[in-house]
Nucleic acid binder design. Structure first.
Lengths: 339, 339
DNA sequence: TTGAAAGCGCTAACAC
DNA sequence: GTGTTAGCGCTTTCAA
């Protein structure tokens, strides 16, 4: 391994000077600089991030906590898109991404904070974290710059980003209402999550605004999985008391609903309208295409990265709760109600 | 920040002893060990990975190079499943995952090797890397333990894993042949990739084995994207010379083919049979369900992790080229040929 | 504009 | 069983 000592010796300067050149400081004579740079290239020198990090206390890396399969056993439907936006943006500023995977630590070391400090990451991105994770509270209060997705948490150094769950739900409802629907059932996500509660609120708000009574029997609780959507629709079917439209808190649940409805002999998009939430890839591939509320996934990653960078690079920055707007995507599952 | 010096002072022992306890060495008296451990917990001490790495030359992290959007602008259809298997397995051995994202390095430092050494990763996982990447050749010959997916490359410290592309293609063809099809077109992936070439070979092999002449006009080159499958099918349709079945080198292309065929008024699964490759999630959600050759994705991640661990932990280990077997998944797009 | 030297937190000879 | 000490490769005062 080539170190700055090798460079220094070869160039006939001190390691300090080499370090200065490497870090682009101004107080080096042009000729020295050139000489050092030349040797750096010649020897194929690469700085050692650990050694640098030891002294500077920065690692130029950000940690990522991502709990997949929390309840579902499924992969997250749009992980890659968000993470790609995040990666591009943060990578352009010189950071690499550290995904925590190590599972051999003893209990004390398993907290978010401990693991982040262990790796000296400069910041943290958290996603799909259960709200009741025992070590989350400590992290919220910590001094580690972090951005958490889909959870309404802020702290001295923690900001959060969600899509406009409430607004998106209203958007979905408005589309249904504009199409003449007034009997609208709702399939909610796991109500222990912030997003699910917000979407439910949006549903209720839209109802209220239009003077439509809220019918608890039309509020079916699911858990964001296809299976739970399927089960919800089965319950609905069995009740015999059908709405003209169903608003699902996620596309995966909407797909489950579609399946159950079709099994029950109903033509989705004809006899019954359906709208989802998320706009996962599948929404445009199934038949009929699922009308839904799009989350801007790539953009969410970008915004998350920018917000985190600000928190890292400017400690005066007050963390915010950011909201991404949503978009209505019209496909085939909503039809105007024939009067 | 609490260091082993703090622990040592408080416990009235030397830092060496603390280090010994921390690393679980045997030559420490039980009472000393207990005392140190107690203080470690009490003070909430967390080891500093960078400092440790500096001396040990190991980082307990493995680097991941993943080129998304290589040509397609699309997210990889089964990234998460593979990476989850990998992450679980490697995490259980104490490693974290470093995703290279930093894009600010100058050219000299942009090679795989340079970036890996910069971060002192103990091993490397590479995926979706263009075969002609200019810095790949150097990595192959390097002494960094690495596993590369879907590329037929081995080196002194590099092993690779692919699914059985050839065998899977034969499997697909056999199913078609068993169902009476003899006029079978093939939509290939990007022929600059190893997997696409192998699958083509499998197609040709099966043809030959059954004494069916290879018809170049029925070998349509695509690039793994839906769009290219769509275009291929359009060409086929226009030629007027239709096969009874089409074997697609990927599910995404098969989906494109389906779309084009349906636009052309053909009933896929009735008038024309179709089989894909990969078994992406979408394959089971579209209508009709796509018959395909499944790649065992999670398992692939697990195997990759195990292979990499072996390479890291045992430098005598000779890297191998591993092949994962595939599975036929029967859904609705293949029908026996009426005679 | 340059260099000497200390120190970041940890491990590992080596000695006792 | 335990401690002393010398690094690991780098940055950063402080002096010159």
């Amino acid at each position: 391994m080539i170190t700055i000592y090798d460079i220094a010796k070869r160039a006939g300067v001190s390691v300090t000077t080499v370090s200065r050149v490497l870090n682009g400081y101004a107080d080096v004579s042009p000729s020295t600089r050139r000489k050092v740079q030349h040797i750096v290239h010649e020897l194929g020198y690469r700085p050692n991030a650990m050694a640098r990090g030891l002294t500077t206390k920065r690692s130029m890396s950000v940690g990522v906590f991502f709990h997949d399969n929390v309840n579902t056993g499924l992969s997250h439907p749009f992980f890659l898109e968000v993470i790609n936006g995040f990666k591009e943006t943060i990578g352009a500023e010189g950071y690499d991404l550290l995904f925590f995977a190590n599972d051999t630590l003893d209990n004390e070391l398993k907290t978010f904070e401990a693991r982040a400090k262990h790796r000296n990451v400069d910041g943290l991105l958290l996603w799909a974290i259960p709200e009741d994770d025992p070590s989350l509270a400590a992290l919220v209060m910590s001094s580690i710059p972090s951005i958490i997705l889909d959870l309404d948490l802020t702290g001295p150094c923690m900001g959060n980003i969600s899509c406009d769950n409430f607004g998106g739900a209203v958007q979905a409802m408005n589309f249904l209402l504009e199409n003449g629907h007034r009997n609208i059932a709702f399939v909610s996500g796991l109500l222990s999550t912030h997003s699910a509660r917000e979407r439910l609120l949006g549903y209720q708000h839209a109802l209220q605004l239009h003077g439509i009574p809220y019918r608890p029997e039309w509020m079916l609780e699911g858990d964001y999985t296809e299976k739970s959507g399927y089960a919800a629709a089965k319950r609905l079917l069995k009740s015999g008391d059908l709405p003209t439209a169903v608003f699902c808190s996620s596309d995966m649940m909407a797909i489950g609903v579609m399946k159950a409805l079709e099994e029950g002999g109903m033509l989705v998009g004809e006899e019954l309208s359906l709208i989802g939430f998320d706009d996962i890839m599948m929404a445009s591939y199934i038949t009929p295409g699922l009308t839904t509320i799009r989350q801007k996934k790539h953009e969410m990653g970008v915004i998350a990265a920018r917000a985190l960078l600000e928190l890292i690079e400017n400690s005066d920055k007050v963390p915010e709760a950011l909201t991404m707007d949503t978009e209505l995507v019209v496909r085939g599952t909503v039809r105007p109600l024939a009067l």
